[in-house]
Amino acid sequence: MPQLNPNPWFFIMLLSWSVFSLILQPKLLSFTPTKLPLNKTHMTPKTSPWTWPWT
């Protein structure tokens, strides 16, 4: 069965991953986002104890 022969498919997989890792990934990571995240202060929510009706 040709599906079980890894000889051509392994080379294709290695080639595609190397193209992605060496060529496409640096090009994609070089883009700057259009909206930079804002520096917001982290606020902790006010918590109040729960009043259980049966106690």
Rank of each mutant, 00 (worst) to 15 (best):
M1Q: 12
M1D: 14
P2A: 12
P2E: 05
P2G: 08
Q3I: 01
Q3M: 03
Q3S: 07
Q3K: 06
L4F: 01
L4H: 04
N5R: 08
N5Y: 02
P6Y: 01
P6T: 04
N7F: 01
W9Y: 12
W9N: 15
F10L: 02
F10C: 07
F11P: 06
F11L: 07
F11T: 15
I12Q: 15
M13H: 14
M13D: 11
L14Q: 15
W17S: 11
S18L: 05
S18D: 07
V19G: 04
V19L: 08
F20A: 09
F20Q: 04
L24I: 14
L24Q: 08
L24T: 13
Q25D: 03
P26V: 02
P26G: 01
P26F: 00
K27W: 06
K27D: 00
K27Y: 01
S30K: 08
F31Y: 09
F31V: 10
F31I: 04
P33I: 01
T34Y: 07
T34V: 13
T34C: 05
L36W: 01
L36P: 01
L36I: 00
P37I: 00
P37A: 05
L38H: 04
N39C: 09
T41Y: 02
T41Q: 13
H42V: 10
H42M: 10
H42W: 09
M43S: 10
T44W: 06
P45F: 01
K46A: 12
T47R: 12
T47L: 12
S48R: 08
S48D: 10
P49D: 04
P49Y: 03
P49G: 02
W50V: 12
W50P: 09
W50K: 14
W50Y: 13
W50H: 13
T51R: 14
W52A: 12
P53R: 13
W54T: 15
W54D: 15
W54S: 14
W54H: 12
